[in-house]
């Protein structure tokens, strides 16, 4: 395979950024068609691995996947090309919308439109949760932990503490498990 340059990676991810409508998980079918079927830069297994790893990493899943693919194609240069390319059109479109927001809000029916779209977000959150639920709430402890964190979140505890606390607890669980394994 011929060497892939910064600009090659940038161009493809610029396109991915433009067609990436409506949230993170649409990136899988898009990457499949752009990177596997059209260019043969990846194989299915790699895409699947990248998706799994991206879910374990902090940040945005689609952005992490772009960085992984970019890194695979052209090391750190590729990772930068991918993330800049992917972010470009969302950045520009949001800046334009934010700039025109007051004019947009002045259109008479726009408030009603937002009213509807905002309400749909409640259902979108439900859909995102449904997707995560079976992988997340797997036993009695995780169900208990879910309720516990939910109460803390509603009481407005800083979410960063909740994340850090969870990471610590995860490490402690593994240490305890290892100790028990050694004693047995």
């Amino acid at each position: 395979m011929k060497k892939i340059s910064f600009f090659d990676v940038f161009k493809v991810f610029l396109k991915i950024g433009i067609i990436l409508l409506g949230g993170g998980y649409v990136i899988i079918p898009i990457m499949k068609s752009e990177l596997i079927e059209k260019r043969n830069w990846l194989n299915e297994d790699e895409l699947c691995d990248y998706y799994c790893v991206s879910q374990c990493l902090p940040g945005i899943i689609a952005a992490n996947m772009s960085i992984l693919v970019g890194y695979k194609l052209a090391k750190i240069k590729g990772a930068l090309a991918a993330i800049i390319g992917m972010s470009f059109s969302p950045f520009v479109s949001i800046v334009i919308i934010a700039h025109l927001l007051n004019k947009i809000l002045a259109i008479p029916f726009i408030e009603s439109l937002f009213w509807g779209v905002n309400l749909s977000v409640i259902v979108l959150i439900y859909l995102a949760l449904k997707e995560m639920w079976s992988k997340s709430i797997v036993d009695l402890f995780s169900a208990f932990w879910f309720v516990f964190i939910l109460i803390l979140a509603i009481l407005k505890v800083n979410p960063a503490y909740l994340i850090i606390g969870s990471i610590f607890l995860g490490v402690i669980f593994q240490i305890v498990k290892d100790k028990r394994g050694n004693n047995a």
Binding site: I125, L129, L150, I163, K177
Partner: peptide, 20 residues
């Protein structure tokens, strides 16, 4: 990593639920 995710996943479900 597996053990951390075991705890972190219900946490992020709970955070998202609180937003809903």
């Amino acid at each position: 990593v597996k053990s951390i995710l075991y705890v972190l996943r219900p946490t992020s479900c709970a955070l998202i639920t609180s937003v809903g």
